[in-house]
């Protein structure tokens, strides 16, 4: 097993400006070998900028970044030997086939032609692209491109992998699949830094989560710790029969004493709960009283809710998403280490 005490990705006071846009205003983060760090943030938070600095594509204006023990500004070539990057937007060569894309990367990584071909075939199989391997990448679907892109970044067995919003734009099944890929990378001993806009994704994959907003770190914790800070999950129930709303309401009050039950959408009741046991409890009681339900789910807070809790204000992003969309229902809107 990898020695998880060694820090292999590290940023200290990272600063980057684009003209007058202050993309990063002093970001600190660190990732230990063999672990996954989730970098969570809304549009324009600076996630991509940070990843591009780590991957030696741009240089920081201030602060330091070290990857695999090397400063990205001083020894970029050493860093490049250790990393694989899957950027936010697929960077595959659309005019080559999937296989040619991978063989080319293999050649550029100094594999011999035979080795490069073998590695390409392995990856195409693994990423379920074997059937499309000899088709030109222009004809690939968005999800296929995304997977080819990820495969391209794994050709050289990199010890450190950067994934910038790897599941954005994937359907739920493909998202699960991508999560599986990330998990097996870690099993293999890779260190992974991934960015995401979903707490759920960070929770599913990451050992630790760094939350950034407006180029600053606003929280850093384990998923469990973060969930404690941002408050409970939400249990949502939609009774099959609207006449049962009253009874469901009473059950929810019982399983989550003290919390307020809200009607979030027509016929759907929601209540903040502390942990999964509330769900089991609710299911048991609903069954005991013979109440049919169409929908019953346990949600982590959305990114909007996380931010509302951490910053006390709704997400205002650069990309014109309506600020505060999805009013937070999580309690405790004043978190400890938030600014």
């Amino acid at each position: 097993m990898a020695d998880t005490s060694e820090i292999v990705i590290e940023a200290e006071g990272l600063i980057k400006n684009f003209g007058r846009t202050r993309a990063l205003r002093g970001v600190d983060l660190s990732v230990r070998r063999g672990t996954v760090l989730g970098v969570l943030g809304p549009n324009g938070a600076g996630k991509t900028t940070a990843v591009r600095i780590f991957a030696t594509l741009i240089e920081p204006d201030g602060g330091h970044a070290r990857v695999a023990g090397y400063d990205v500004a001083k020894h970029p070539q050493k860093v490049r030997e250790a990393i694989g990057l899957t950027g936010q937007y697929a960077s595959v060569d659309e005019d080559l086939t999937g296989r040619q894309n991978l063989v080319l990367i293999g050649m550029l990584l100094d594999l011999r032609l035979g080795e490069a071909r073998a590695r390409a075939a392995e990856l195409l199989d693994w990423f379920d692209l074997a059937d499309a391997a000899d088709r030109i990448a222009k004809t690939y679907s968005g999800g296929m491109r995304r997977r080819l892109d990820l495969a391209s970044s794994l050709v050289g067995h990199p010890e450190i992998v950067f994934l910038d919003e790897p599941t954005t734009g994937l359907d739920p099944a493909k998202r699960e699949e991508m999560w599986g890929v990330v998990r097996s990378l870690v099993t293999e001993g890779s260190t992974v830094l991934l960015t995401t806009q979903y707490l759920e994704e960070a929770d599913a994959l990451a050992d630790e989560i760094t939350v950034i907003d407006h180029g600053r770190v606003i929280a850093h914790d384990t998923p469990d710790g973060l969930k404690r800070i941002v408050g409970a999950r939400t249990l949502e129930v939609r009774p099959a029969d609207l006449a049962d709303v009253e009874r469901v309401d009473r059950i929810l009050r019982d399983v989550a004493p003290g919390a307020s039950v809200e009607v979030v959408r027509a016929g759907i009741l929601a209540v903040p709960v502390a942990d999964e046991s509330a769900m089991t409890e609710a299911v048991a009681r609903l069954a005991a009283q013979g109440i049919g339900v169409i929908e019953l789910s346990l949600h982590l807070p959305s990114l909007d809710e996380v931010f509302f809790t951490l910053t006390g204000q709704p997400v205002d992003d650069d990309d014109g998403r309506p600020a505060g969309a999805g009013r937070p229902s999580a309690p405790g809107a004043t978190a400890g280490d938030a600014r």
Binding site: A55, T56, E81, I83, S91, L108
Partner: peptide, 8 residues
Amino acid sequence: FDRFRALP
């Protein structure tokens, strides 16, 4: 080119 620039 981002891919190329991140290669050694």
